[in-house]
């Protein structure tokens, strides 16, 4: 039933796309088949896999760094009032700086390098991860922490078995929104200052007004992210919430 609904919804999207292509003409909106063939051609030449790989590596690196730093900062800010007071203005600043400003400044200050690109993506994602984890840290159950303390549990045990399970819904939320945000920003970073990756390819295609290629790359990447969501994020969420009694 669920699968049928999902498939039906995708079929509807394809139909609308096909109709749109008829109305707007293949130059502005190539039909699904043309885009599919372009994807196959890019895949044959190896360019698709290479660019997807490069972009994915940037997404993974930026995402991992931002999540680890964000978790540490969020925990510190959620649990220590002084740290929160000091960190909060920085957070507000970073949250409100447009992504483009951070990227451009990073490239100007650090050159058109991989480090600058990664740093720009991390700085864009970091405040959101921090804010979400801080919320989680504020909601930590003091009673359980006291229990862990009187039973002399080690620091690691307290983190692994008492804190982490409480944080996991917040970490999952931060990962969800984080993954989609990070890949969008990685594309802009690549467009502006990298010689490869999906963003770079889309930039070149834009200059040539090659809508087919733009859509081929965008779709390929969305497919990859969808696969990650379905085969990594969702099973992980199911695993960490296995103890919750099912709603009847």
């Amino acid at each position: 039933m669920n699968a049928a609904l999902r498939l039906g919804s995708i079929a509807l999207l394809l139909a609308i796309w096909f109709l749109g292509s008829r109305l707007a003409g293949p130059r502005l909106l190539p039909d699904p088949q043309t885009v599919g063939l372009a994807m196959v051609a890019e895949a044959r030449s190896g360019a698709l896999a290479f660019n997807l790989g490069v972009t994915l590596a940037r997404v993974a690196a930026a995402f991992a760094i931002a999540m680890v730093l964000g978790t540490m900062l969020g925990l510190a800010m959620g649990r220590r009032r002084t740290v929160d007071r000091i960190g909060d203005p920085w957070l507000v600043l970073l949250l409100n700086l447009p992504a483009l400003v951070i990227i451009v400044l990073a490239y100007i200050w650090a050159g058109l390098t991989e480090t600058a690109a990664l740093a720009a993506v991390v700085l864009n994602k970091l405040p959101l991860a921090t804010v979400t984890v801080r919320e989680g840290a504020r909601a930590l159950d003091r009673n359980l922490e006291e229990m862990a303390r009187v039973f002399r549990m080690s620091r690691w045990k307290r983190f692994r078995h008492v804190m982490l399970p409480q944080l996991s819904p917040y970490l999952a939320a931060a990962s969800r929104s984080g993954l989609s945000l990070v890949w969008k920003i990685v594309l802009i970073v690549e467009l502006l200052g990298r010689p490869n990756g999906v963003g770079f390819e889309i930039g070149t295609a834009f200059e040539l007004f090659d809508v087919t290629k733009i859509m081929a790359y965008a779709l390929a990447f969305v497919a990859v992210m969808l696969a990650i969501e379905t085969f990594v994020v969702q099973p992980f969420e199911r695993y960490v919430s296995r103890w919750r009694p099912r709603p009847s």
Binding site: N143, L144, E146, M147, H161, V162, P165, V240, W243, R244
Partner: peptide, 8 residues
């Protein structure tokens, strides 16, 4: 209160 870890 029992103070058990619900996830264990």
């Amino acid at each position: 209160e029992p103070r058990l870890l619900p996830w264990r």
